[in-house]
Simulated assay, not measured.
Amino acid sequence: MLKKCFGLLGRNIHYSFSKGYFTEKFNTENLVGCSYENFDIQDINEFPEMIKINPDLVGLNVTIPYKETVIPFLDELSENAAEIEAVNVIKITNEGKLKGYNSDYYGFKKALEPLLQLHHKKALILGTGGASKGVAFALKELNIQYTFVSRKASENAIGYDQIDAAIFNNYHIIINSTPLGTSPNTAEFPPIPYQFFTQKHIAFDLIYNPAETKFLKKAKEKGAVIKNGLEMLVFQAEKAWEIWNE
């Protein structure tokens, strides 16, 4: 029987959504011979050896902190992944070639779209890591202007200390793409002035565990529409499955 192994590449990923999701999918859909494993490596330079000793591997999801650093190890990138400069899906061909894709942007776009109203024209993206790049790409496709927010202001981002009432009045979508608030560090949250959230705002957190982060709680208290990252994850996982089976 043909064995097909899939997995998640990341660091400290015992909490991962993907393994549980795909294992259940394989059982429910009776996909015999398919398995899903966590590949928890401490350094991206361990990646080639990991590929070599797992000849049954046909597809990988990629999570923090390797969405960008894995790129030099790949043979090819899809058009979207090349533009986004971040990869969260790898397809391994029969010839052993590695091609990188990005399904994060697709998952985020599908999860955000139902919440959008006419006044949602501008977004703040908190964080500038690999996940933020997929978010920015999706916003561009939705014709929503965006600005990155980072600890230090730069050419490409404003600093957290620059966010005030005027900015909140201008930007009605606030997206947390940082890991701040992820379990077990649930007391953490991005340092923004939450008092300026209103009913006109959407607070979207890419985190899914806990279901309601401090960021979402504090925004909800001011009447904002909130959404966590679970639906986005499901959408991007199904897109990954589609890519692996093309």
Rank of each mutant, 00 (worst) to 15 (best):
L2E: 12
C5M: 10
L8W: 12
Y15P: 01
E24T: 07
N27T: 06
T28P: 09
N30A: 15
C34E: 04
N38D: 06
I41Y: 02
I41D: 05
I44A: 03
N45S: 11
E46G: 02
F47R: 02
P48D: 01
M50A: 03
I51C: 08
I51K: 07
N54T: 13
P55K: 07
P55V: 09
V58I: 10
N61Y: 11
Y66C: 11
K67I: 09
V70C: 11
P72L: 12
L74V: 08
E76A: 15
E79Q: 06
A81D: 00
E83H: 09
N88K: 05
N94T: 14
E95R: 14
L98I: 15
Y101K: 05
S103N: 03
D104W: 03
Y106G: 00
K109E: 13
K110L: 15
P114Q: 07
L118I: 05
L118V: 06
K121G: 03
L124R: 02
L124W: 09
L126S: 03
G127E: 10
G127C: 12
G130P: 08
A131W: 06
V135N: 02
A136D: 00
F137H: 06
F137I: 13
K140W: 06
E141L: 13
L142K: 07
N143P: 08
F148D: 05
A153I: 07
S154W: 10
E155G: 15
D164L: 11
D164T: 08
A166E: 08
A166L: 13
I167E: 03
Y171R: 02
H172A: 00
T178A: 06
A187M: 06
A187E: 12
F189A: 05
P190D: 11
P190Q: 06
I192G: 04
Y194D: 01
T198R: 04
K200V: 11
K200E: 13
I202V: 03
L206V: 08
L206Q: 00
A211S: 06
E212I: 08
K218Y: 07
K218M: 11
A219P: 01
I226K: 00
G229D: 01
G229R: 00
G229Y: 08
E231P: 00
M232A: 03
F235C: 12
Q236K: 04
W244C: 04
N245H: 12
